[in-house]
Design a protein around this nucleic acid. Structure first.
Length: 949
RNA sequence: GCCCCGGUGGUGAAAUUGGUAGACACGCAGGACUUAAAAUCCUGUUUACAGCAAUGUAAGUAACGGUUCAACUCCGUUCCGGGGCACCA
C-alpha cells in the first residue's frame, strides 16, 4: 500500500456521508459545544483558498471537542440574499434564485472536498422562504415591541398602548390618547417601535433611477457609470439599535472578543458623557420678539463654560431661521445655498476647509451674562447631540481654527497651558478666569459645573451616543419582503399566519418609480388585502430587508432548523445556548456582530431565548491575500488596451497627472524570481488578445534572455485582480489533508498572510512520512513492499515519553488555536517515532487520534489499517500521563552574569545547595570565575542557573 | 489627526510569557542510493572573525536609551508597516 490520498479521501468522504457521521442530535448525555463559522455569501466565483482558513480552524476545533467527549454542533449555511446575485441578474437576466442555487451547489461541493464535518441536515439558506418566514416573524416582533426606558428592555407594544390608554404620558393624557384617531395613535407609536419607519436620506442616482448602497457610491458618483449621486429623503425602515447602545456596550465585558474588536465596537457606539445646557438668545442687540429663544447645546466639557467665545449651530438646525437678523439674512441664505450644494463626500473630504457664517444673533452665557455671537457652520453636525455647540477656542482644535479664521477674540481660561498658537484639550490644567471654578483642576471641575447647571435648572447631565439607528430598507429585489401593508400613511403588520410573505417571481430587476425598489413594478402584488380573509385594501411595502437581516439570527436556526412552529424551540436554544466559539473575519466588527448582538438581546427580552449575548468567544481569522504581479507602463498613444485586455489591465493614477497602465499577472505567468520573459509576455498577450505596444518596454538582459522584473503586491483575493487560487487545484494535487494542515502551518490563524504554495511540499512530505511509519517502502521497480510494519507489543517508557509529550503539546495548541505550532509538533513526533523505529500499535493509534482533527482522512484510513474498532472520529482522546513527562535528570545551562558558559546535569528535584555545589565543582565554570567572588547564585528550577560575580 | 496591532535568518515562522533566540518547514549548498530521473535519506545553513577540523570568540530580534543577575519579551523616545475611526463637541 502506498499513500494514495485521492482514493483514501474520496472513500472516507463517501463513507462519512453514507453513515451520517456528522449528524448531531439535540439530545445527548454529553455536554454540548457549539462551534460556528460566519456563513458565506455564495458568490459566483466559488471558494478561493482564503475562505477555508477559518473553516479549517473551526473544523479542527469541532473535531477536537468531539474527541474530547462533547456533543458538538458545527453547522454551515448560506447568506444567500444579496446584491451581487441581483447585479448579475440585471446583466444577464438570470434569476437570482437560479444563480444562487447553482453557486451554493458549487460551494458545497468544494467544502466537502476539504473534508469538513458539517451536519448538512441543518443547513440554512437565508433566501429560502422556510427560513425568511422567521426573519419576517422576528421583524414583526421588533415592530410590535418598544424599548421600555424604566426597565431598560424590550416589551410588547401592547403594554405601551395599555399604558397610554389608562395613564397617558407626559405629552398627553389618557383621555386625549383615546380621542386620537387611529392614524395619530400609530404615528406616536411609530416613535417607539424597535423596527420603525421614518423619513431618511438615501443615495439617489437620477441617471440610474435608483437608490444606491453606500459602497456603490464612490467619490460622490455611482460606482457603475460614474453618474452624480444626491441625497434624497424617502420613507425608510430603521432598527432602533440606539436604544440598546448601553447594553451593547456593557455586554462587551461579558464576552471573549479580542481587545481591538471590542474597541472597534466601543468606538462605533461612541458613548460620551456630558451635559446639555441652554443659552438664552438676546442680549439687547436682538430684534424684538426673540428674547424667549434658547439654544440647547451639548458639551462633554462643561468645565470650560467660561471660555465660551461663540456658539455654533448646524446649518440644518430648525432654529436658524428664527436666529438670523435682518442684516445677516442675505449672508446666511448664501451660506445655506452653498452648504446644500455640497455633497456628503465633499463635506467629508474637505474637513480642513473652514466655512461658516455669523447669524447676527447673540446668546448669553448663563453664568456671567456675557453676550456670545451665534454662528452657523458645517463642521457642526445636525445629527449628533443637539446640533449646536458651545465653542471654546483655547481648548478645542476646531473651535480654535474657526476663531482664528473669523478673527473671533479668544478667552484663555487655562493660563500657560494655552500658548496662543494652538488649542490645548487638556483636562489637567487649573482653571482661571472662571469665576466659581477658579483654581480647580479641569477634570474635577466637570462634575462641579454640571451640578451647578442642574441646580440653576438650565440644563442636565446627558449621555450621548455616536451610533445611529440602523437603516433597514433596501430598494432592491433580492431580499426579504417586509410583512407590512400601508394604508394611507399607516403601516399595518401582516398577521403571523400570513407568513411567509413570499418574494414574488420577477422577470425584470430594474428599479421601480420614484426611487422605489423593483417590487414596486409588480402592481398586482403591490395591491394587497390586509389579511388572508381579504378585509381592507392596502399597498405593500416595496423595499426589502438588508443583507444583515437574515444573518442576525441564523445561529439560532441551526439549533432547530426544520421547526415549522417557531424560529427555534426554547428547549433547543436552552440546550445549545450561546455559540461557544465563533470564527470569522474582522470585517464584520461593527456590522453583523452588532446587529446580531442586538437581535439576541431583543429576543431575550421578549422571552424567546435564555441568553443575551450570542457569541461567547470570537476568533478572528486573518485574511489570506493573493499575490499580484505586475508591471506598469506610462500611458501613451501607442498603448491602447482593447476590450479583452482591459480584463487584466487596471488603471493607476498617480498625482492625478500621469496615468499608468498596470498589467496584472496571475502567478502562472511568473517565474521564481518574479520575472517575466519576453516569451512569457508574448504568450500572455496572445492568450488575452492584448493590443499593446510592447516596443515601448525596456527589457533587461541576462545571457540571451530578455525579461522584466515584475513588482509584487499582496492584496485581497479577487477575480478582477487575477490573484485567486482555487482550493480544488491544491486538493487535487496534494489532497485535502495536506491542504488543511498546510493552511494551518502557514502561520497564526489570526494573522493575515499572502497565499504561497512554497512550503506545501513539506507538509505533504510529513504525511508520507507518517504513512511510512505504518507500511514498508515500495520499490517501484519490483512493486515489492508496502507491508504493514506495526507490532502489537507493549511500548517502552521512551516510546511513551514521545507520545505523552505530543499529547501535551497538541492539546495545548489546539485549545489555544495555535495550529501552526501544533502541526510542527506532529512533524517532530513523527520524526522521533521514525528515529526510534517505534511501530507499536498502541502508540500509533494514539497519534492517529491526535491527528484526526487536522488530517481526518489519513487518520481514519490508518486507524482501520491497524485493525481498530469503529471510526476514529469517535475514538477516545488519549489521556495525558504526567509521569512520562518527568525526567530524572536535566541539563541546566549555566550562565555567568547572564552569559551562557556551560551546562551541568542535575537531578530535576535538586535543591539550590546541590546545584551550587555542582556548579562550583565544574571545571569550565571555575575557569570562568577565575577565583572571583560569587556574589549571588540564582537557581531557576527546571530552567537554568545563573552566577553573578 | 486619533485609537489599536505589528516589525525576529534568503522565506513562512517559533520562543514554556523575563531564563540557551531562530523550534518546525521552505529554499539553498553538499553528499548517499540510481545508468539516469523521480522518490527517499543524511549533513550544513543568523552574521563576522580565527582554525584543516571538532570548535572557539564577538555581535545579533527596526533604531537609540532605561530597568534587571538575565530583555524578542517590561518602561521611554524615534522610525517603518498594517488595520479601524475620522469634524461626534
Amino acid at each position: 500500500m502506498e499513500y494514495n490520498f485521492r482514493e483514501i479521501e474520496q472513500k472516507w468522504q463517501q463513507q462519512w456521508k453514507d453513515s451520517n457521521a456528522y449528524k448531531v442530535s439535540n439530545e445527548s448525555p454529553k455536554p454540548k459545544y457549539y462551534v460556528l463559522d460566519m456563513f458565506p455569501y455564495p458568490s459566483g466565483a466559488g471558494l478561493h483558498v482564503g475562505h477555508p482558513l477559518g473553516y479549517i480552524a473551526s473544523d479542527i476545533y469541532s473535531r477536537y471537542k468531539r474527541l474530547k467527549g462533547f456533543n458538538v454542533l458545527h453547522p454551515m449555511g448560506f447568506d444567500s440574499f444579496g446584491l451581487p446575485a441581483e447585479q448579475y441578474a440585471l446583466e444577464t437576466g438570470q434569476h437570482p434564485a437560479v444563480t444562487t442555487e447553482k453557486n451554493i451547489e458549487t460551494f458545497k461541493a468544494q467544502l466537502d472536498k476539504i473534508g469538513f464535518c458539517y451536519d448538512w441536515s441543518r443547513e440554512v439558506r437565508t433566501s429560502d422562504a422556510s427560513y425568511y418566514k422567521w426573519t419576517q416573524k422576528i421583524f414583526l416582533d421588533l415592530f410590535n415591541s418598544y424599548f421600555c426606558n424604566t426597565q431598560q428592555k424590550a416589551r410588547p407594544i401592547a403594554d405601551l398602548i395599555e399604558k397610554y390608554k389608562t395613564q397617558g404620558n407626559k405629552n398627553f393624557t389618557a383621555v386625549q390618547w383615546n380621542a386620537y384617531s387611529k392614524a395619530e395613535q400609530e404615528e406616536i407609536l411609530m416613535k417607539r417601535r424597535l423596527a420603525f419607519s421614518s423619513f431618511g436620506e438615501v443615495n439617489w442616482c437620477e441617471a440610474l433611477g435608483t437608490v444606491l448602497a453606500n459602497d456603490e457610491v464612490v467619490n460622490g458618483v455611482s460606482e457603475r457609470g460614474g453618474h452624480p449621486v444626491v441625497k434624497k429623503k424617502m420613507r425608510q425602515w430603521y432598527l432602533r439599535i440606539t436604544a440598546y447602545a448601553d447594553r451593547l456596550l456593557q455586554g462587551l465585558e461579558t464576552v471573549q472578543f479580542s481587545e481591538p474588536m471590542k474597541e472597534m465596537q466601543r468606538n462605533w457606539i461612541g458613548r460620551s458623557e456630558g451635559a446639555e445646557m441652554q443659552f438664552g438668545v438676546g442680549s439687547g442687540q436682538l430684534a424684538v420678539g426673540k428674547e424667549q429663544l434658547a439654544i440647547n447645546v451639548y458639551t462633554t466639557r462643561p468645565d470650560t463654560i467660561f471660555g465660551v467665545d461663540f456658539l455654533v449651530v448646524a446649518p440644518e438646525h430648525p432654529i436658524v431661521n428664527s436666529l438670523v437678523t435682518a442684516e445677516q439674512k442675505t449672508a446666511i441664505e448664501e451660506y445655506l445655498t452653498y452648504v446644500k450644494s455640497r455633497s456628503d463626500r465633499e463635506r467629508m473630504s474637505e474637513v480642513k476647509q473652514i466655512t461658516g457664517c455669523f447669524t447676527g444673533a447673540y446668546a448669553t452665557n448663563p453664568f456671567n451674562g456675557k453676550p456670545i455671537p451665534v454662528w452657523i457652520a458645517e463642521y457642526v453636525l445636525a445629527g449628533y447631540g443637539t446640533g449646536a455647540i458651545m465653542a471654546v477656542p483655547c481648548g478645542d482644535q476646531r473651535d480654535f481654527a474657526f476663531a482664528k479664521h473669523f478673527s473671533i477674540p479668544i478667552t484663555n481660561i487655562i493660563g500657560e497651558y494655552y500658548n496662543g498658537e494652538e488649542a490645548n484639550p487638556t483636562k489637567e490644567a487649573t482653571l482661571q478666569n472662571s469665576d466659581f471654578l477658579n483654581g480647580m483642576l479641569m477634570k474635577d471641575a466637570i462634575a462641579v459645573a454640571i451640578n451647578k447647571i442642574e441646580e440653576l435648572g438650565i440644563g442636565k447631565r446627558k449621555v450621548n451616543y455616536r451610533m445611529r439607528d440602523a437603516g433597514f430598507s433596501r430598494q432592491r429585489y433580492w431580499g426579504e419582503p417586509f410583512p407590512i401593508v400601508w394604508q394611507d400613511e399607516t403601516a399595518i403588520a401582516l398577521a403571523e399566519t400570513d407568513l411567509p410573505l413570499e418574494l414574488p417571481y420577477a422577470e425584470k430587476y430594474g428599479p421601480g418609480p420614484e426611487g422605489e425598489g423593483p417590487l414596486a413594478n409588480m402592481t398586482d402584488w403591490v395591491q394587497a388585502p390586509l389579511s388572508t380573509s381579504g378585509e381592507g385594501q392596502g399597498v405593500r411595502e416595496t423595499s426589502t430587508m438588508p443583507g444583515y437581516a437574515g444573518s442576525s439570527w441564523y445561529f439560532l436556526r441551526y439549533m432547530d432548523p426544520t421547526n415549522t412552529e417557531t424560529f427555534c424551540d426554547r428547549k433547543a436554544s436552552d440546550y445549545w445556548n450561546q455559540v461557544d466559539v465563533y470564527v470569522g473575519g474582522t470585517e464584520h466588527a461593527v456590522g453583523h456582530l452588532l446587529y446580531s448582538r442586538m437581535w439576541t438581546k431583543v429576543l431575550y427580552d421578549l422571552g424567546y431565548i435564555g441568553f443575551e449575548e450570542p457569541f461567547k468567544k470570537l476568533v478572528n481569522q486573518g485574511m489570506i491575500t493573493g499575490r499580484s504581479y505586475f508591471f506598469e507602463i506610462e500611458l501613451s498613444d501607442n498603448v491602447k488596451p482593447n476590450e479583452a485586455s482591459q480584463k487584466i489591465v487596471s488603471y493607476k493614477k498617480e498625482n492625478g497627472a500621469t496615468n499608468f497602465l498596470r498589467f496584472r499577472y496571475g502567478h502562472q505567468f511568473v517565474d521564481a524570481n518574479n520575472r517575466i520573459t519576453r516569451d512569457l509576455l508574448n504568450k500572455a498577450i496572445e492568450k488575452y488578445d492584448l493590443v499593446i505596444a510592447i516596443d515601448t518596454i525596456e527589457w533587461l538582459n541576462e545571457g540571451n534572455e530578455e525579461f522584466l522584473v515584475l513588482k509584487e503586491e499582496s492584496e485581497k483575493m479577487s477575480k478582477s485582480k487575477f490573484n485567486v487560487d482555487n482550493p480544488d487545484e491544491v486538493v487535487e494535487k496534494y489532497g485535502a489533508d495536506t491542504f488543511r494542515m498546510y493552511e494551518m502551518f502557514l502561520g497564526p490563524v489570526e494573522q493575515s498572510k499572502p497565499w504561497d504554495t512554497k512550503g506545501i511540499e513539506g507538509v505533504h512530505r510529513f504525511l508520507k512520512k507518517l504513512w511510512r511509519l505504518f507500511f514498508t517502502d515500495i520499490n517501484p521497480a519490483t512493486n515489492a513492499g508496502g507491508e504493514p510494519k506495526w507490532v502489537d507489543s507493549k511500548p517502552t517508557d521512551a516510546e511513551y515519553k514521545i507520545l505523552h509529550k505530543t499529547i501535551k503539546k497538541i492539546e495545548q495548541d489546539t485549545e489555544n488555536f495555535s495550529y501552526n505550532t501544533a502541526v510542527a509538533a506532529f512533524m517532530i513526533s513523527v520524526n522521533e517515532l521514525a528515529d526510534a523505529k517505534c511501530y507499536k500499535k498502541e502508540i500509533l493509534s494514539a497519534v492517529l487520534i491526535l491527528l484526526t482533527p487536522y488530517a481526518p482522512h489519513i487518520a481514519e484510513e490508518l486507524w482501520h489499517a491497524l485493525g481498530n474498532e469503529g471510526s476514529v472520529l469517535d475514538a477516545i482522546y488519549p489521556t495525558l500521563e504526567e509521569k512520562y513527562l518527568v525526567e530524572a535528570t536535566k541539563e541546566y545551562p549555566v550562565s555567568i552574569n547572564g552569559k551562557m558558559r556551560s551546562a551541568i546535569n542535575l537531578p530535576t528535584e535538586a535543591t539550590e545547595e546541590e546545584a551550587k555545589q555542582a556548579v562550583l565543582s565544574n571545571e569550565v565554570i571555575l575557569k570562568w570565575l577565575e577565583g572571583k567572588e560569587m556574589k549571588k547564585f540564582i537557581f531557576v528550577k527546571g530552567r537554568m542557573i545563573n552566577v553573578v560575580i
